[in-house]
């Protein structure tokens, strides 16, 4: 319940504050968001499987975001930033779909 409320609070803050993304963060924010979403879906799935661990979630969330950002940063330095971010998004997207399928099986039993 608290995590859901916190998520809603974050959304509300974003809506109210109208922040602009710093230029330096602009390439990384979308990737970071997708990576975090992957961690969240993984956490929900683990919770439904009964193996959820807060520490694992925190670590996976932070490391996901950092690794995704690092990969994109490396890609930018190597001149293949666009392609690498596409790759990261594809991989994370596949994981999100896999986790979403597991969650669906738990919730709907189908």
């Amino acid at each position: 319940m608290i995590p859901a409320l916190a998520l809603a609070l974050g959304v509300a803050l974003g809506l109210v504050l109208h922040p602009t993304v710093p230029d330096a963060l602009q390439p990384y924010l979308p990737i970071a968001v997708v990576a975090a979403l992957d961690a969240v879906f993984g956490a929900v799935r683990a919770q439904l499987d009964g193996i959820f661990d807060d520490r694992v979630f925190v670590v996976s969330f932070v490391s996901n975001v950092l690794v995704a950002g690092l990969v994109v940063f490396l890609g930018d330095q190597l001149g293949v930033g666009g392609q690498l971010s596409t790759g990261v998004v594809v991989v994370l997207g596949i994981r999100i779909f896999t986790n979403a399928a597991a969650i669906r099986r738990h919730v709907f039993r189908a």
Binding site: A6, L9, G10, V11, G14, L37, V58
Partner: peptide
């Protein structure tokens, strides 16, 4: 609390992005 914070940051980031 850390989990909640992270999720709040996630919600915030999604909206910002």
């Amino acid at each position: 609390v850390l989990v909640a914070l992270l999720l709040a940051v996630l919600g915030f980031a999604v909206v910002v992005q």
